[in-house]
């Protein structure tokens, strides 16, 4: 068993880390909003942690706090993400349709250009030698694991209270929800900002985990990958993001023998999943279960 963790531990930690990014897209999707911003907040959160962890001016603070510096970094990322999330989300979410997706694409690009030009972020080279929280990278499961459980709990809890019903009402029909007295824009912004905050904190935890942080953490490709976790895993099940992340993170490892052509296969998997598994893996499993239990072929 120990051999298993030595070989696959890093993969498992990465799956949980990526599933967190998937969940950060799941939050706005609960209210029917497509956001591609997660990777931008993830990148910013990582920079917050990287700067707080390495900047010489903060050395006394780091010495005084010791390990507690890490929670402070998460808090910094959280505050920044919430403020920026509201600033980005509010103008775009007053509108219906695809505008949030487009505004968040723009946000990711602006973040990328900005960090490349800010001296404090280390330009194209990025920030190196970020202090580690643990000796072994496997131990980072103690960062990501509890955060993942907390996020899952939040999703589950929200789904079972008035706020969740408001989200679902907005997702199904904004106009009808508004007519029933649901604050449409407010609920959309709340769902979006929850996702931003989660992505920001995940970034702050990931900077020590990856040891270096640079603008390549926040590319458009990466934000598409996050979206794919949710849609391939299943956008209507809280296990969807984990399921999708597990598949898409391990797929390149499994396909390693294919070398250069494996990204092509990755694309084919994306298209095939959209066409043949429109409800994602979890949706497909639910349909299968319904069929096996003999209550008619829902699929």
């Amino acid at each position: 068993m120990s051999g298993f963790f030595e070989n696959y531990g890093f993969l498992i930690v990465t799956i949980v880390q990526q599933a967190l990014l998937g969940l950060s897209i799941y939050f706005p999707l609960m209210a029917g909003q497509l956001s591609l911003a997660s990777i931008g907040f993830y990148s910013l959160g990582g920079y917050v942690a990287a700067v707080m962890g390495t900047h010489p001016a903060l050395a006394p603070l780091r010495e005084a706090l010791g390990f507690w510096m890490f929670p402070l970094e998460w808090l910094g990322a959280l505050v920044l993400s919430v403020i920026l999330g509201i600033a980005v989300g509010y103008p775009a979410l007053r509108l219906r349709g695809i505008y949030l997706a487009l505004a968040t694409v723009a946000f990711v690009q602006v973040v990328n250009v900005a960090v490349l030009n800010m001296p404090i972020a280390g330009g194209a080279v990025g920030i190196f030698g970020i202090p580690q929280a643990f000796e072994s990278r496997l131990d980072y499961i103690w960062f990501f694991g509890p955060l993942f459980l907390l996020a899952l709990f939040l999703v589950w809890r929200i789904g079972n209270m008035g706020r969740g019903l408001a989200f679902f009402a907005v997702r199904e029909d904004e106009l009808a929800a508004g007519a029933m007295g649901v604050a449409v824009t407010g609920n959309k912004v709340t769902a979006f900002v929850l996702g931003c905050a989660l992505a920001g904190v995940t970034g702050a935890m990931s900077a020590p985990f990856l040891n270096t942080w640079n603008a390549r953490q926040g590319t458009f490709d990466a934000s598409v990958t996050c979206l794919a976790y949710v849609l391939i895993g299943g956008s209507r099940s809280i296990w969807g993001p984990l399921c999708g992340a597990a598949l898409l993170v391990s797929l390149p490892e499994l396909l390693r023998p294919l070398k250069d052509s494996r990204m092509i296969l990755n694309g084919i998997v994306l298209v095939a999943a959209c066409v043949y598994l429109p409800q994602g893996i979890m949706g497909g499993l639910a349909a299968l279960r319904a069929r096996l239990s003999g209550r008619g072929g829902a699929a």
Binding site: L34, V224, M263, N266, G267, L270, C274, V275
Partner: peptide, 30 residues
């Protein structure tokens, strides 16, 4: 077309077109 004919969620068309983009770009690189 496959998604339209099934009346699938428009968000899926976004992802499937991104998938095609991934295929084209990496095919060029290959």
């Amino acid at each position: 077309k496959p998604l339209r004919q099934r009346g699938a969620d428009p968000l899926l068309a976004l992802v499937s077109s991104l998938g095609v983009a991934l295929i084209v770009v990496n095919l060029i690189q290959y």
